[in-house]
Design a protein around this nucleic acid. Structure first.
Lengths: 200, 200
DNA sequence: GACAAAAGTGAGTAAATACTTACTCTCTGA
DNA sequence: TCAGAGAGTAAGTATTTACTCACTTTTGTC
């Protein structure tokens, strides 16, 4: 068990991870600062030594998500030779990430819904935009390499790529079982690939 | 303007429509009973003459959504001759519905996130299951008619169909503009259709 | 037009929740 | 070893929010 007293930066890291874990178990927008503290065996007041407001805490969480997700995806993409293989790797890496951290897509969607343009919302927007641009770049490379249908609408293909993951997430929310996601993912991805690939 | 005093059933109907409208403007989970009443120019207390709890009100809203969405989709499907054409009509009808009522997919997603299995959550699950089954039935018919790739994984195709809409919704949350949805939808649908269609 | 039933009002209440503060404990380095 | 900085505690406070209730206004019927 972790000691009661932690250096500030470690405490902040533990807090963020606690929020990510909690978001995998319950509606992210219903997570209270009290439950976060309780989960860490910490008093409620102590939380506010490390984060001035709840919004600042959510900002740190979104930063954690953006960094980890994009880093892992970039690593997976770099390891592949062809653009289409990279797209496949990107998809499966994303799915793995969601299986490990089921709260993440729900937090992102929840932030996007917010009315005011808070810092965490802006971070969610930025993340998704970067993600979309990465997909688009791979699609362009794939088209240049002759792997992808030359007539393909790249913007639409990028939107559908995000939707492909999103459809799986909805499915897992329906079934209440994130584990099955990984098994179902390849079949869904195949349909997508068939939709964008250059015809033999 | 509607009169201050309405028969109970009309007041309930107006209330539900007010919630649907509000959900198009702000985070559905942040809609309070007070704002609902205010929007109707009604006192807060009066709301609770017509709905015993907020949860019951949300139940009525989900029922409204399920009935309207499925009825419209069924009508569109019936008007088409071939299964693939019906699938296209279903998609565009759904998109139209979302453009008219942008709060709907967000309410649905929000309900699915809930921890406890409340009545509104169960209704959201039922709706999405019925929706998925309808897609699957069309896919099966399409396969029987030879329009669709015989090797297609139907469950995966149904998941991706839902994701196709969902991807557009995420896009509109990013852009903050639901109107563009209708214009972008056909290109996204085309990629999906290319993914499931029987190769010439 | 009187009356009862239906619908609405508005001032409340209790619970939840983000944040504060005065204090105490614990670790570190000179 | 001990002073002080850093981390934690616990009992607050202010605000929000779902829901209540005693009372008033409107509406439809005879």
């Amino acid at each position: 068990m972790s000691p009661r007293h932690l250096p500030a930066d470690e405490r902040r890291a533990v807090t963020v991870e606690t929020v990510v874990a909690l978001a995998g178990e319950q509606n992210p927008s219903e997570i209270t600062t009290a439950t976060i503290a309780e989960r860490m065996q910490l008093s409620h007041g102590a939380l506010f030594r490390h984060f001035p407001t709840k919004e600042a805490l959510w900002g740190a969480v979104m930063e954690w998500v953006a960094e980890r997700l994009m880093a892992r995806i970039e690593r997976a993409v770099q390891a592949e030779a062809s653009p289409l293989a990279a797209l496949e790797a990107m998809f499966m890496t994303h799915v793995d990430f969601v299986v490990e951290h089921p709260g993440v897509p729900r937090m992102l969607f929840g932030e996007l819904q917010r009315a005011e343009l808070s810092a965490p919302k802006r971070m969610a927007q930025t993340l998704l935009r970067r993600y979309g641009e990465r997909v688009r770049a791979l699609l362009e490379a794939g088209r240049a390499a002759g792997e992808i249908d030359p007539a393909l609408d790249l913007a639409a293909a990028a939107t559908l790529f995000v939707g492909t993951v999103q459809g799986l997430v909805v499915q897992s929310l329906l079934a209440g079982d994130v584990g099955r996601l990984r098994g179902e993912a390849p079949a869904v991805l195949n349909i997508y690939l068939r939709g964008i690939r250059r015809q033999g």
